[in-house]
């Protein structure tokens, strides 16, 4: 497997390969989010308890679940970069961090805007909310550590260690609603048993979750490619691209 993977660890090939993958991610993400959001806002039935306020779920849950998935992706990349010293993995981790931070902020914000009409408060210091806030700070910590060092090999190591240690927060977020009594409702999507939500609400939600995942993938590719160029400014192939861009 390593023999097969190795050529893709070449920055130029990774740059080109990610460029070919990008339109698939972008187009699929756009389509899925358009369908999921329209379905959720217009066609999904009104909730008998929460009325139309529950329609926030179609962005809140995708953002929240993908904020954790993106963190796992970032930590995995950081781990590969740290253990096998593959710089491309470090650059991938650095590209995910700002996206994860924005997605986490969206999860927190939409949660607050849903909490106000349902619980009567924008914010409570509850286990689920607090651990998700810690996730935002972890992302911000990784971003600032990576930005703080001129030497990007050192920067990636420092940021990578924080990213890996921060993984401990992920199961805490996931199980917070079971471990502690919480104002936050437990998950409505069940993998092993029947979900507690009607399929007319569940389908648009699943579509948007997938759409958010692909969108994060697409933006990661865009940032990853810019990061490859920034870290390889001395290479002839990058210099040729730079010359071409200057003429434009």
């Amino acid at each position: 497997m390593w023999k097969w993977l190795h050529p893709y660890a070449d920055p130029e090939r990774a740059y080109k390969l990610s460029g070919t993958l990008f339109p698939w991610f972008a187009i699929l993400a756009g389509l899925l989010i358009a369908v999921g959001t329209t379905w959720g806002l217009v066609f999904a039935p009104t909730d008998y308890q929460q009325g139309d306020s529950y329609r926030i779920i179609f962005i809140h849950v995708p953002a929240a679940s993908m904020s954790m998935a993106a963190y796992m992706g970032m930590a995995t990349a950081a781990f590969i970069g740290l253990v096998w010293q593959i710089k491309l993995a470090d650059w991938a981790a650095a590209s995910i961090a700002p996206i994860g931070a924005v997605i986490t902020f969206i999860a927190l914000f939409t949660g607050a805007a849903w909490g106000k009409p349902m619980w009567g408060a924008w914010w409570v210091w509850d286990a689920r909310l607090t651990s998700e806030l810690v996730l935002l700070f972890l992302y911000l910590g990784v971003i600032s550590l990576y930005a703080s060092f001129e030497d990007k090999v050192l920067a990636a190591r420092a940021a990578g260690i924080l990213a890996i240690v921060g993984v401990i927060n992920i199961p805490i977020i996931k199980y917070s609603v079971e471990w502690w009594s919480s104002l936050h409702q437990p998950s409505t999507i069940r993998i092993t048993e029947k979900s507690t939500m009607s399929t007319e609400m569940l389908y648009p939600l699943l579509i948007n979750i997938l759409g958010f995942g692909l969108m994060i993938g697409a933006i990661t590719i865009v940032r990853f490619r810019a990061e490859i160029l920034a870290r390889n400014g001395m290479r002839p192939w990058v210099r040729e691209l730079a010359k071409a861009e200057e003429v434009k």
Binding site: R55, F109, T110, W114, K116, P117
Partner: peptide, 24 residues
Amino acid sequence: NMGGYAFYVWLSYGVTFFCLATLI
């Protein structure tokens, strides 16, 4: 009108759209 929850629903969707657009 979103069944009376217009402010909260559109605030959520608006802020999400703005954040994602800026990021992209």
